[in-house]
């Protein structure tokens, strides 16, 4: 082979083809997808996250939860996502309209979180779990997020937010563990995660 320009043309065209095929065409085909109205509730779906939940989303991003948790439910008959209670239907493009970036994830060191807000709606549970996963889930490999909490001296009155810790996790007497705003935001985000509305392209149970 002697022809540099010809070589270059081939190199250009091959990548151009997949750039168009895998990014530009999808953008044209479903980059403009719109929200839809859910019949039973009369509400738009999906809704954007806002307030505390959207701040929590940033914490999810910054602390790399995606390296252990996916947010995508595979269909019935492919894996056991639905049987495990991770969702009532498969995930589809419309579920992610407002997500920047999308936290699809590729690892499941921990369970899928697409519907964690439905499966585990308890703020207290999430706070204890984030403070130290060993409290609720002995043997878990999820790291503790103690840096989202504050240990402080109990003032005149114990804080109503303080974690209820017992046994090996108990705080030294006179001290209490309280969640920071960050911890509360992150939990607000987790509770907002819920994709169980039936859609035309994704009926329940599929």
């Amino acid at each position: 082979m002697k022809y540099g320009p010809l070589l270059f043309l081939g190199i250009f065209l091959t990548l151009a083809s997949s750039w168009v095929g895998l990014t530009v065409i999808p953008q044209m085909q479903f980059g403009g997808l719109q929200t839809t109205k859910i019949e039973e509730t009369g509400r738009d779906y999906p809704l954007n996250t806002w307030g505390a939940a959207s701040k929590g989303r940033e914490l999810y991003r910054a602390n790399g939860c995606i390296y252990c948790h996916s947010q995508q439910v595979r269909p019935q008959g492919f894996g056991a996502d639905i049987e495990r209670g991770w969702g009532t239907r498969r995930s589809v493009s419309r579920d992610y309209l407002y997500d920047k970036p999308v936290f699809l994830g590729t690892m499941r060191t921990g369970p899928d979180l697409t519907n964690i807000g439905q499966r585990q709606p308890s703020v207290d549970w999430h706070l204890s779990h984030l403070y130290d996963p060993q409290i609720t889930s002995k043997g878990s490999t999820m790291p503790p997020y103690r840096f989202l909490f504050e240990q402080r001296k109990i003032g005149a009155k114990p804080s109503p937010d303080a974690l209820k810790l017992t046994g090996e996790f108990a705080t030294p007497p006179g001290y209490e563990i309280v969640p920071t705003e960050n911890a509360k935001d992150l939990v607000a985000y987790l509770l907002s995660l819920r994709a169980d509305a039936a859609l035309l392209e994704a009926p329940l149970g599929k």
Binding site: E83, G85, W86, R119, T136
Partner: peptide
């Protein structure tokens, strides 16, 4: 059983024994 594992076991544990004090 599956519903229990998904919804209840995080608190009441797979063994049904719960967690003391919690």
């Amino acid at each position: 059983k599956r519903t229990y594992t998904a919804m209840c076991a995080p608190c009441h544990q797979e063994t049904g024994l719960g967690l003391p004090g919690q």
